Simulated assay, not measured.
Amino acid sequence: MKVAIIMGSDSDFQVVEKGYNILKDFGVEVDVRVISAHRTPDEAINFAKNAEQNGYELLIGAAGKAAHLPGVLAGCTPLPVIGVPIRSTELDGLDALLAIVQMPPGVPVATVAINGADNAALLAVQILSIKYEDLRMKFKEYKKQMAEKVIEKDKKLSEKLANN
Rank of each mutant, 00 (worst) to 15 (best):
V30N: 03
V32Y: 09
R33H: 09
V34P: 00
I35N: 01
A37L: 14
H38N: 13
R39F: 15
R39M: 15
R39W: 14
T40C: 15
P41M: 13
D42L: 15
A44V: 03
I45M: 07
N46C: 01
N46V: 00
A48G: 11
A48W: 09
K49C: 13
A51M: 08
E52H: 11
E52F: 09
Q53C: 10
Q53W: 04
N54K: 00
G55I: 02
G55Y: 02
Y56A: 09
E57W: 12
I60S: 01
G61C: 10
G61N: 03
A62Y: 05
G64W: 04
H68M: 13
L69W: 11
L69K: 11
P70C: 14
P70M: 14
G71S: 07
G71L: 09
V72S: 05
L73T: 06
L73H: 08
C76P: 06
C76M: 10
C76D: 09
L79P: 03
P80E: 02
P80R: 07
V81I: 01
V81N: 02
G83Q: 11
G83C: 12
P85I: 10
P85L: 11
I86R: 01
R87H: 03
S88W: 00
S88M: 07
S88H: 02
T89S: 11
E90D: 15
L91K: 15
L91W: 14
D92A: 14
D92N: 14
L94R: 09
D95I: 06
A96T: 05
L97M: 06
L98S: 07
I100R: 06
M103S: 10
V107N: 13
P108H: 06
P108I: 05
V109R: 04
